[in-house]
């Protein structure tokens, strides 16, 4: 017998490249979900990963950084918040 697979329709789920159970440090919503001001997850509501290894929904963090009291610090570790460059890899 010869089995010829003509078409394979697979299903997958996507997730952000962070540990699956982690939630946004600001809105406490799952990264794979949306920040409170967004409707659609994924492209519309990206996440941002800092050099300090803390991740947030981008919108959540931007809102925080707009506040004067934030002084540009990461809300978790109070270090100046800098985004991780494209090629850098998070070390956990």
């Amino acid at each position: 017998m010869k089995v010829r697979i003509k078409e394979w329709n697979a299903v997958s789920i996507w997730h952000w490249n962070v540990s699956e159970d982690e939630v946004c440090g600001i809105c406490r919503v799952h990264f794979d979900g949306t920040c409170p001001s967004c409707k659609y997850p994924g492209d519309d509501c990206p996440i941002i990963i800092g050099k300090c290894n803390h991740s947030f929904h981008m919108h959540c963090l931007l809102k925080w950084l707009e506040l004067e009291t934030s002084r540009g610090l990461c809300p978790m570790c109070r270090q100046p918040f800098q985004t991780l460059g494209e090629d850098e890899v998070i070390t956990t």
């Binding site: 078409e7 329709n9 697979a10 952000w16 994924g42």
Partner: peptide
């Protein structure tokens, strides 16, 4: 295509077209 995102496959869902040559 989508920076920072990964896929996890759900192997048991979906459909397959096969042809069996006996």
């Amino acid at each position: 295509l989508k920076q920072g995102r990964k896929l996890r496959w759900l192997n048991h869902i979906g459909s397959v077209k096969v042809e069996l040559e006996l």
